[in-house]
Amino acid sequence: MNTVHTLGPGLPVAQHATRQAHARAARRRLLVYLGLTPFVIIAVFPVFWMAITSFKTDADLVNPAVFPFWFHQPPTLEHFTYLFQHTYYGDWIFNTLTIAVLVSIITLLTAVPAGYALARVALPAAEKLGIGIFCAYLIPPILLFIPLSRIVALTHLIDTKWALVVIYPTFTIPFCTWLLSGFFKTIPAEIEEAAQVDGCGRLAAFVRTVVPVSWAGMLTAVIFAFTLSMQDFLYSLAFVSVSDQKPIPLGVATDLMRGDVYFWGSLMAGALLVGVPVAILYSFFLDQFITGITSAAIK
C-alpha cells in the first residue's frame, strides 16, 4: 500500500511504518529471550553447582555463613586427586572405555549388515522385521534384568564388566540397526549395482562400495553405542557389585560414600568428569537420535 505513496509525501509514513515494525520485532525477540531465560537457568544450574562443588574445599562447602555459589577459599583439585589416589576411579575409566569399545564393535558387526539388509535387499518381510527390531528397543530393561541376572550368573560373567559388554548390545543393536537402515537408504543404489554388474557378488559389492562411504553413519552408531551405554544404570547395578569392575556412573553413584556419609566434593568431581564429555558428545548427535526414533513416524 505504501508503495503507491513512496514517490510523494508518503515517504516518511513508510519509514515510520518500518520503524514501528522493527520495534515490534525487537520487542518480540526480547520477550522470547525473557521466556527462554528461566529454561536455560534451570537446565544449566545443576551442572554449574556440580562444577562449583567439585572445585571447592570441604571447609568452604559446608560453611553456612557464605554465599554458596562462589569460592570463598581458592579453588582446589583435592577432590580430583582423591578420586585417583584413594578410589577405583582409574579402574572405572578403564572399564568404561573397554565396555564402550567392545559394545561398539559388537554393535557394528551386527547392526551394519542388518541395517543394510533392511534398507536394500528388498526382503518380503523387511518392513515387519524393521518394526520388530524397533520394538525390541522399546522392551525395557526392567522386564529383562531378572532373567538376565541368571544368564550372567550361569555364564560366570556376573560381577565382571564382561556382563555389561554382552548385555548392552541388547539396546544398542536395535537402535543402531534402525539408525543405519535409515542411513543406507540415502546412499545411491547405483554404486553397488555398478560393482555387481562388474562381477562382484552382493557381499563383495557391499563391503567394497557401501562400507567405504558409510563412515559417517558408522561413527554415529559408535557414538550412540557409547552414550546409550552411559545412560544405563539398572543393568550395571544389578550385575556388577565388585568395585573395580564398575563403569563410571555406577561407581560414582555407589562407591564414593564413606560409611553412610556423602562426600559431595569428590562425588561431584567424579560425576562432572564423566558427565561433561558424555553430554557434549551426545548433544552433537542429538538430532540423529531424534531422527532415529521419529523416522518411524515420518518415513
Binding site: 545443576p46 559446608v62 556423602y262 559431595w264 564423566v274
Partner: peptide
Amino acid sequence: SLLVIPWTLPVAISALAWKWMFDPQF
C-alpha cells in the same frame, strides 16, 4: 545446546547432582 544438557547427561549423574541440591542441610 545449553537447553539439552539435562537430556544428554547420564541419568545417574543427574540424579546425584539433584540429590546434592536436595541435601537436607545444604
